[in-house]
Design a protein around this nucleic acid. Sequence first.
RNA 1: GCCCCCAUCGUCUAGCGGCCUAGGACACCGGCCUUUCAAGCCGGCAGCACGGAUUCGAAUUCCGUUGGGGGCACCA
Length: 490
Amino acid sequence: MEAISLNSKVRVRFAPSPTGTLHIGSARTALYNWLYARHHGGAFVLRIDDTDLVRSEDRHEKSIMADLRWLGLEWDEGPDVGGRHGPYRQSERLERYREAAAALLEAGHAYHCFCSEERLASLRASALAAGGAPRYDRRCLALSPAEVARRLASGEAAAVRFKVPGRDAVIDDVVRGQVAVGAAAIGDFIMIRSDGVASYNFATVVDDLDMEITHVIRGDDHLTNTAWQVQIAEALGAEPPRFAHHSMVLGADGGKLSKRHGATSVGDFRKLGYLPAAVVNYLALLSWSHGDDEVLGLGRLVEEFELERLSLSPSIFDRAKLDWLNHEHVMGLDPREHERIFASRLPAETPPPAVAALAAAFQPSLVVYGEAPALAAGVLEEPAPDRARVAGAQLQLQEARRLRAAAGDWLSPVVARDLLAAYRVWGKERGIRARELLMPLRIALTGVEHGPELPFVLAALSRSQTLRRLDAVIAGAHTGASNPTQGDAP
RNA sequence: GCCCCCAUCGUCUAGCGGCCUAGGACACCGGCCUUUCAAGCCGGCAGCACGGAUUCGAAUUCCGUUGGGGGCACCA
């Protein structure tokens, strides 16, 4: 094993079907492949498994590639970047599969099948009813070569089936050890459909061999596929790649992670404002660990990640932990980078000083960037008139007036910190406690009792905004006092 | 139904026969800090699915039960 890895360069592939967006579970598979390739100095190949011609769409291929790049998982070979083993779309390799099928037909490892889908369906139904695994009954294997030739010549549609060798398939799995699938469970499956297009299980084997893939790293939902695939590889006279089947990602209820669990695609998380580094970090931590280190960047992951240490059991996707990791990554971000991302979430017309102040204010506590607009609005938006009235009622009117009257003093320093310090000095001289001094100011400025630290609020607002809000609250308090139902405290 | 995989706190995991009175993290609860809410810091709660067997000794090995997941297409 050591000798092999020294002599042959590791080559892995991620082979999504462009039938939808990149699911978080698939992203995890891509990540494991990528990490394995980078760790071993090997190649990471992107192949598009689009043999399902009707469900495959170009826009999905594009979005999957965009999501992979967003995650930071660049590939060395693929449909857009090329490479020595192209083409990298299965739809462009159809001829190659027919060629390989012809060889298998020639060698007696495959045969033509003329059975209708209806017959196959009823075969399946009766097998299931009888309590057995649905397997093809090999009716067409019994056809004479002459009859096959005649029916083919007459233009009758035929699929090509693999003639399974009838022995157990043994998979030597990197993470699971030896896994044996009994011969009884493996039927003669279709390699080439009657429309001439290869099926997944066949195309995959041909491509993995052609592309010199050394390790196939994928979800354990493929474990039974692997049984057939090793047998095809052997029939093709080739040494199958090593396999590594990782566990699945489940939803909070233990079921397959799907739409009803909320965000499930990489794009969803991108839109919500998660950092790619945090998503990747979380995905790696799902079924893997490295001592007490949990907050790990891509670089560390490349160094430390080991397939052999993957947990064997399925893991449940926990958004709360992802949130925590994202928060950790946000805190660790270069402040300028954080400000850039934060700003991208705000309305374009947000004044630069406000952007800078708010970005700085929230870097220590932000969970996801999707929160940015609401957080910023809480400070930047003028408190609603009725809100100002309510705030005015909560405010000690005397305090507010004194505050406003003193504005000339505390608005003079340019830096917000100094502003606040000066204000506190002003209050201290008058024997006013910090809470009584600052809470009314907070309410006057933002209309609510919670929010970022006041220095940031002051820095985010312009001088005229600050004065206008104070005036509005004082005026609102007046209105409240003159309103009999309001019952403003004396 | 049949086949395959899996099984440590609610969740992700450490543990690979004695170092385990089972460690860490998230979540939760409490405290501290603080103008507020968060964040941060400190502390707490909480688990080896069950039954046999092996062994001087089992979370760790073996068998079974139960439970969970996956697969069983001319989808990938």
